[in-house]
């Protein structure tokens, strides 16, 4: 009796797994196919290097160079802000905080990770953008910097938890012998734990970069969405917000519609590369 069920169950599990993987693969292939239609009309190179984006004009006005730059710029600002803060806090968590307090702080970080991006965007618009306008006397507070700051807060939990995991292990491994030498905690953290965690820090950077580049709502609400060359205090456009804003307007099957798939594909290509790097960095970190 059990024997039959056993075989049936293992077949079912296998079937469902294959279905899941096919589904995931299908998503990627689907987007790829929809973009290919576009790349038959416009070459990849001119799409990526084109400086003007105006879907209402002719096909040669579909270039996402500025938008790619905007995506990278906002994400880099976010990483530059989030990395030192995240690493600093992870070190403190690993070396100075224990037991209940650590659990509570980790809970707080989880809260940060759980807040939906649209809420971040909402606060960003009402607080950050407004502050820029009143304090910095900008005509428009919607800017790369606003997006970067907001994204920095959003990716912090990922940076902290990725770093903290490895730092805590390193700290625990070395604390007894270091204490036996009478060396202070902060010296141990600085001289041993921090250098030992560089793989984790790289992994955290890559993970955070991926998150930042793929983020839609929060960024879209504070960057002004203008496909112009980005400057720190000026407006810009990112690929996810471009898709979110224009998909509803583009007629299904039109060149504009396919161009949005194509920009999604460009974004995914970059992200897939980043994630593969993350996967291998993490795996080699485990092996070590």
């Amino acid at each position: 009796m059990y024997k039959v069920l056993d075989v049936a169950f293992s077949k079912l599990i296998k079937l469902l797994t294959i279905f899941s993987l096919l589904l995931l693969a299908f998503v990627v292939v689907f987007i790829f196919r929809e973009s290919v239609v576009f790349f038959k009309e416009v070459s990849v190179l001119s799409f990526i290097s084109g400086r003007s984006w105006n879907p209402l004009l002719a096909a040669d006005n579909l270039g996402i160079f500025n938008i790619i730059l905007g995506t990278l710029y906002v994400s880099l600002v976010a990483i530059i802000l989030a990395l030192p803060i995240g690493v600093g806090m992870a070190l403190l968590l690993a070396g100075y905080v224990e037991g209940r307090v650590r659990a509570i702080i980790r809970g707080i970080i989880d809260i940060l990770a759980g807040i939906p991006s649209v809420v971040y965007g909402f606060i960003g618009l009402l607080v950050l953008v407004k502050w820029f306008e009143t304090r910095l006397d900008l005509s428009s507070g919607e800017s790369v910097l606003a997006g970067g700051i907001l994204l920095a807060v959003m990716v912090l939990p990922y940076v902290i938890s990725t770093c903290h995991e490895s730092m805590e292990k390193a700290y625990r491994r070395h604390a007894p012998s270091s204490q036996a030498l009478g060396v202070s905690r902060s010296y141990l953290l600085r001289e041993i734990v921090l250098p030992e965690s560089r793989r984790a820090i790289i992994a955290a950077t890559v993970l955070a970069l991926g998150r930042a580049m793929g983020e839609t709502m929060a960024v879209m609400m504070v960057i002004g969405n203008a496909p112009i060359p980005p400057t720190l205090l000026g407006k810009c456009q990112t690929i996810p917000s471009l898709i979110a804003l224009e998909m509803g307007m583009a007629e299904v099957g039109s060149l504009h519609y396919h161009s949005l798939f194509a920009s999604g594909l460009v974004l995914m290509a970059v992200l897939l590369a980043i994630n593969l790097v993350f996967y291998f960095v993490r795996r080699s970190a485990f092996m070590k």
Binding site: T17, L21, L24, A25, V27, V28, F30, I31, E34, G210, M213, G214, E215, T216, P240, I243, A244, M247, V252, L260, F261, G264, L267, M268, L271, L272, I274, N275, L276, F278, Y279
Partner: peptide, 23 residues
């Protein structure tokens, strides 16, 4: 399996939305 799942985790939500919309 791990690579596919890992890659899928990295696909931005808006692109998944794009897929849902079209397909």
């Amino acid at each position: 399996v791990h690579i596919i799942v890992q890659c899928m985790a990295g696909v931005p939500s808006i692109v998944i939305g794009l897929f849902g919309y079209t397909f």
